[in-house]
Simulated assay, not measured.
Amino acid sequence: MNSDTSGACSGSRSANPPGEQEIRSWLVETMAGMSAVPRAEIDTTVPFAELSLTSLQGVRMSADLGEWLGMRIPNGVVFDYPTIDLMARYLSNAVKPVEEVPAAVDEEPDPHDPDFDESMEELLRLLDEDVRRSAVDVNGSDVVEDNGEPA
């Protein structure tokens, strides 16, 4: 399926993310392209299932939509927000303008930095705590005791 379903919605996005109406238009165009229903006849309040959207089409639509929006869209979004209106409203609130997204750190941590060892020790301690909290055997009992010894 081609995600460039609308002239207004195609191509690369500017710094301003699409609003609810633009996302709604993209979804309507996409649904029209996936089904035999003409664009003008697609009711944006009707659940996707009633518009004959299959699970595979839903996954494909989520991937194309995520590519267009520049974000990862969970495959289950069509079940969580089962109409075009609900999904457009949700996604318009989820997408942030480029200025609001923190820039990625380009530099690698310096192992010669005096704080590096301390930071790594803290990271390892937090990971260890998380593993201990989530360590459960198949019977549901703790695998590791609070004192760090195996149960």
Results as ranks from 00 to 15, higher is better:
residue 61 M to R: 02
residue 18 P to L: 01
residue 93 N to T: 11
residue 92 S to W: 01
residue 12 S to Y: 04
residue 62 S to P: 00
residue 110 D to G: 07
residue 59 V to H: 02
residue 137 D to C: 11
residue 121 E to H: 10
residue 109 P to M: 04
residue 116 F to L: 01
residue 47 P to L: 01
residue 28 V to R: 04
residue 75 N to I: 08
residue 106 D to L: 11
residue 59 V to I: 15
residue 25 S to D: 14
residue 108 E to C: 08
residue 87 M to V: 06
residue 58 G to A: 02
residue 145 E to M: 13
residue 27 L to K: 04
residue 41 E to H: 11
residue 65 L to N: 02
residue 40 A to M: 12
residue 24 R to D: 06
residue 128 D to C: 14
residue 120 M to N: 08
residue 58 G to Q: 00
residue 84 I to G: 03
residue 105 V to N: 11
residue 93 N to H: 11
residue 42 I to L: 07
residue 106 D to E: 08
residue 11 G to T: 06
residue 6 S to K: 04
residue 3 S to M: 11
residue 57 Q to W: 04
residue 118 E to S: 08
residue 38 P to T: 01
residue 7 G to A: 14
residue 28 V to N: 00
residue 85 D to P: 03
residue 134 S to A: 13
residue 128 D to I: 10
residue 11 G to E: 05
residue 27 L to G: 03
residue 9 C to H: 06
residue 142 D to L: 14
residue 45 T to C: 04
residue 54 T to E: 07
residue 45 T to N: 09
residue 9 C to N: 15
residue 108 E to F: 10
residue 107 E to F: 14
residue 41 E to Q: 15
residue 65 L to P: 09
residue 123 L to K: 10
residue 91 L to C: 05
residue 23 I to K: 00
residue 103 A to F: 08
residue 61 M to G: 05
residue 127 L to P: 09
residue 109 P to G: 01
residue 52 S to Y: 07
residue 26 W to D: 00
residue 79 F to C: 08
residue 59 V to M: 09
residue 149 E to P: 06
residue 121 E to T: 13
residue 68 W to A: 13
residue 119 S to D: 14
residue 56 L to N: 09
residue 111 P to C: 03
residue 63 A to G: 12
residue 114 P to I: 06
residue 55 S to M: 04
residue 119 S to E: 13
residue 57 Q to S: 09
residue 136 V to M: 12
residue 106 D to K: 11
residue 118 E to Y: 07
residue 78 V to K: 01
residue 77 V to G: 02
residue 9 C to S: 13
residue 70 G to V: 01
residue 117 D to A: 12
residue 90 Y to G: 07
residue 63 A to T: 15
residue 85 D to G: 02
residue 18 P to C: 05
residue 126 L to V: 08
residue 42 I to C: 03
residue 49 A to K: 12
residue 72 R to A: 13
residue 12 S to T: 12
residue 9 C to F: 06
residue 143 V to D: 07
residue 54 T to G: 02
residue 108 E to Y: 09
residue 151 A to K: 13
residue 65 L to C: 05
residue 60 R to C: 15
residue 26 W to P: 02
residue 149 E to V: 14
residue 143 V to K: 15
residue 100 E to G: 04
residue 15 A to H: 11
residue 10 S to H: 03
residue 83 T to E: 07
residue 93 N to K: 10
residue 140 G to A: 04
residue 44 T to M: 00
residue 96 K to W: 04
residue 46 V to L: 11
residue 103 A to D: 09
residue 118 E to H: 07
residue 149 E to D: 13
residue 117 D to P: 09
residue 22 E to N: 08
residue 32 A to L: 05
residue 104 A to C: 09
residue 98 V to C: 07
residue 56 L to P: 08
residue 61 M to C: 10
residue 27 L to V: 01
residue 32 A to G: 09
residue 114 P to W: 00
residue 19 G to Y: 01
residue 139 N to L: 15
residue 127 L to D: 15
residue 131 V to D: 08
residue 33 G to R: 06
